[in-house]
Design a protein around this nucleic acid. Sequence first.
DNA 1: ATAACACTTTAAGTATACTTGAAGTCAAGG
DNA 2: CCTTGACTTCAAGTATACTTAAAGTGTTAT
Lengths: 136, 136
Amino acid sequence: MKTYTIQEITTLFSLSPSTLRYYEQVGLLPKVERNSKKQRVYTQEHICRIQSILCFKRTGLPISKMLKFFSYESNLENNMDNIIQLLSDHEVMLKVKIEEIQKDLLHIHQKVEYYHKVKQSFEEHTEIPCFYNFKS
Amino acid sequence: MKTYTIQEITTLFSLSPSTLRYYEQVGLLPKVERNSKKQRVYTQEHICRIQSILCFKRTGLPISKMLKFFSYESNLENNMDNIIQLLSDHEVMLKVKIEEIQKDLLHIHQKVEYYHKVKQSFEEHTEIPCFYNFKS
DNA sequence: ATAACACTTTAAGTATACTTGAAGTCAAGG
DNA sequence: CCTTGACTTCAAGTATACTTAAAGTGTTAT
C-alpha cells in the first residue's frame, strides 16, 4: 500500500506540518503510524480524511463539530440519527449562507461599479454620481 | 434628524453593545456623538456604516481591510485606484469562494444522502451501501 | 433618599485555529 | 567524526474578533 511522508501531504494539501500534527493532536486525524525513524507515515485513508476535514473547514464547520462527526462515523450504528442531523443542519446553514453571500456579492459588485463611475467622472471633471445606496 | 440609542442599534442588527463599542474603538465606526448623559447617539449614517461592515463581515473581509476601505473612502480623490483594487480583489476572492463552497455543499449533500441510505439498509437489515467516494 | 436602570470606561479574558520556539533524534554525506 | 536535513515532542505564543468584569455616572421610580 502506498504511503506518504508529512512533506508529501503538506504539498498535496498546502497545509503546514504543524497543522497536520495539530489535527492529529486534537483527534481529527486518527492514529498515524510511524516508521523506524519515528516519523509519521500517512496512508490513503488519511488523505481521504484530510479531504473531508478541508471540505468541512471551507464550509465553516468548526473543529468541535468535525470531531463529533468523526466520532459518530466510527460508531455509526448508534449514531445514525446524530450523523444525519449534524450533516443536515450544516447543509441547511450552508444554503442560507450561500444565499446571503450572493446578495453581499451583488452589493460589493455595485460598489465596484460605483467607484469606477466616480473615477471616470473625476478624470473627466464631470459631476460625481450620487453615493451608491445600500439596500438590504 | 432621527437618532438611535445603543439599544435600538443592537436590536436592529443583533449586535451586542460591546461589539458596537468595540467597532467604534478600532475605528470602524466614525465619531459617535453623545447626549447630555454621555451616552452614544447613533444616526442614519451609522446605520449605513454598520450595514457595510456587516456585509463585509459576512463575506469574510477582515477588520483590517475594512479599515483600509473606510480610510480610502474618506479621502477618495487620492485613493480612487486603491479602493477599486481592494473591492475588486474582494469580489474576485468571493466568487472563487462561492464556487468552492457550492462544490462542498454538493459533497455534503451526498454525504447526507449516503447516510440516509445506510440508515434505511440498517433498518431493513439489507446490505450497507459502499462508502460514498469523495472526489474533489 | 435610595434603589433600579441604562448606560459609561478601561483592562483583562475568551474562543478558535493554528504557529513558533527550543531542544532532541536519527540516518546520510563529506 | 561531524554536520546537515528532515523529522520529532512539548509548551508557549499569535491573530482575529469579540466578551466580560469591575467600577462609575446620571436620570427615573418608590
